[in-house]
Design a protein around this nucleic acid. Structure first.
Length: 213
DNA sequence: AAGTGGCT
DNA sequence: CACT
């Protein structure tokens, strides 16, 4: 039935020529990571941004690091300051850099130093349509995605929107890395199923580390 | 256009 | 797919 829905508790799993799903890689650090998220989003609160078409995203977002991904009616871009406050985004916590760099190295991308961390909060029902990460200047750096809280079905498509996506279950503490030949693959997430996580509560938090410039 | 609605 |  769901033979292509990976949920194993085993080690790193290769899901593409340049992509690895590292089950539980951030499990030990999860409480500290969540505490950092709470501090960061006290300074730069979660907000539901608008797409260029005028729709409001179901996912609430914030950022930390030198650059933050933002969207409004003008389009998608990286910005050095929070549009809500006009202030720089909070700095990337050293723990974030350490975890993201280690995950990238395990996936074959040594020396990964992200300059942008997008913090996504999924409440039940929140989803992300298939898209490509292509607002970065340099596609040689990978994408590192870290999951906290409730599990969600991740859609990992191909280089064309019409390519049928694989379905991967992303759970608390999982880290997904994609780059190289997989860097521009379409991806997204199915609507978050209601539930309660013992540490995070009724939500999923995703940290996406990127090299924007 | 990382969302939505409506077509076949 | 077209539109926003």
């Amino acid at each position: 039935m769901n033979g292509d829905l990976f949920a194993g508790a085993s080690g790193p799993e290769q899901i593409g020529p340049g992509s690895w799903l590292q089950h539980g890689a951030a499990l030990d650090a999860a409480p500290a990571l969540f505490a950092e998220v709470q501090h960061l989003t006290a300074a730069a609160p979660f907000r539901q941004m608008q797409t260029p078409g005028g729709s409001r995203m179901s996912v609430a977002m914030s950022n930390c690091g030198p650059f933050g991904w933002v969207t409004d009616r003008s389009g998608y871009r990286y910005a050095a300051t929070d549009p809500l406050s006009g202030l720089p985004w909070p700095p990337l916590p050293p723990l974030f850099l350490q975890i993201a760099g280690a995950a990238a190295e395990r996936a074959g991308y040594p020396g990964f130093v992200p300059d942008a961390c997008l913090i996504n909060r999924y409440a039940p029902g929140a989803r992300m349509a298939l898209h490509q990460d292509k607002d970065e200047r340099d596609f040689t750096a990978p994408i590192v995605s870290l999951s906290l809280g409730l599990p969600v079905v991740f859609l990992f498509g191909g280089d064309q929107r019409s390519d049928p996506p694989a379905r991967l279950l992303l759970s608390h503490g999982d880290v997904l890395v994609w780059g190289g030949p997989d860097r521009l693959r379409f991806h997204g997430v199915m609507p978050l199923k209601p539930g309660r996580h013992e540490l995070l509560g009724e939500q999923r938090i995703n940290l996406t580390f990127r090299k924007a410039r």
